[in-house]
Simulated scan of single mutants.
Amino acid sequence: MTQQPKLALITGGSRGLGRNAALALANKGSDVIVTYHSQQEQAETLVQEVRALGRKAAAIQLDAGLTASFDGFKDELLQVLRDTWQREQIDFLINNAGFGLYASIADTTEAQFDELMNVHVKGVFFLTQKLMPLLADQGAIINVSSGLTRFTIAGSAAYAAMKGAVEVLTKYMAKELGARGIRVNTIAPGAIATDFGGGRLRGSQEMQAFISGQTALGRTGEADDIGGVIASLCSSEMGWVNAQRVEASGGMFL
């Protein structure tokens, strides 16, 4: 009997780290479903790239900060699972959707804080809760955090605080889902030159030079440095790694 391919759901998968993780998982033999907020064209392009690798793929719209939409998203996900995969469960959930905010504590508005909270903490908590029945036993959850929970860069207080909450939440998820054999880990990327935060790092040679000088491996990170780590954390080879924060930063600020 042929073993069914593993199936991953990646939030915020139309570009950046989510896109790279989707391709890395596909290259390791997993099928993927990605969510997108507004970049439907990019998400559909990714779906075609994954299919070109011989894997099945789909894209579904999701506002990761709008918990009221999660029931509808779950229903749509179930329909896609039944239609495309003839199944009703996923194996891996990668909570990747998010956005950056660069503002001092003095300048951060309550509206900005609430938006960060809704996507990075409340959204992760309640989307995971909603999808627990659809997550197969012996599966895995990867929550995306940030190197900023270990080292500090002025202007990142609110964003980093949200990611700190995600890291604590990861441990509690691992504790409560352990009886089902579901592993839950955090990946904490360092500075990555993607569209994230409006492409702030990618567009600044001065910032790239600073980060490179503070990183043991001597350069800024790329999306290709992260997707493979996420895929590896989902693999059976990492089956005894649980409730851990895995930093992938090239050795920033050692």
Rank of each mutant, 00 (worst) to 15 (best):
T2G: 13
L9Y: 08
G12W: 01
G13C: 06
R15Y: 00
R15L: 09
G16C: 08
L17P: 01
G18L: 03
G18C: 00
G18Y: 01
R19S: 03
N20A: 10
A22Q: 03
L25W: 02
A26K: 08
N27Y: 01
N27V: 03
S30G: 06
T35L: 06
Q39F: 06
Q40M: 04
Q40A: 07
E41L: 10
L46G: 04
V47Q: 05
Q48K: 14
V50A: 04
R55D: 00
A59S: 13
L62K: 10
F70V: 09
F70R: 15
D71P: 04
F73Y: 10
E76M: 02
L77S: 06
Q79D: 03
V80R: 04
D83A: 09
W85L: 08
W85I: 12
I90Q: 03
I90M: 09
D91E: 10
F92W: 06
F92T: 06
F92M: 03
I94D: 08
I94C: 03
A97G: 06
G98Q: 14
F99G: 13
L101D: 08
Y102A: 01
A106G: 08
T108W: 02
T108G: 05
E110N: 12
A111C: 02
Q112H: 14
F113N: 04
F113V: 09
D114E: 14
E115H: 09
G123I: 00
V124Q: 02
F126G: 07
M132V: 15
M132A: 11
A136T: 07
Q138P: 13
G139T: 06
A140G: 05
V144S: 00
S146D: 13
T149I: 15
T149N: 08
F151L: 07
T152I: 14
A158S: 13
Y159A: 14
A160G: 15
A160M: 13
A160R: 12
A161G: 00
K163N: 04
A165P: 03
V166Y: 14
E167W: 07
L169M: 12
T170M: 04
T170W: 05
K171D: 03
E176R: 06
L177V: 02
G178M: 08
G178W: 10
R183Q: 12
T186Q: 14
A188Q: 10
G190N: 06
I192Y: 07
A193K: 02
G199L: 02
G199W: 01
G203C: 05
A209T: 13
Q214T: 11
L217G: 01
G221A: 07
G221K: 05
A223R: 12
D224Q: 13
G228A: 04
G228E: 05
I230K: 05
A231S: 14
C234R: 11
S236K: 11
G239K: 11
N242A: 11
V246C: 12
E247L: 07
E247D: 14
A248S: 15
A248F: 03
F253S: 11
F253Y: 15
F253P: 06
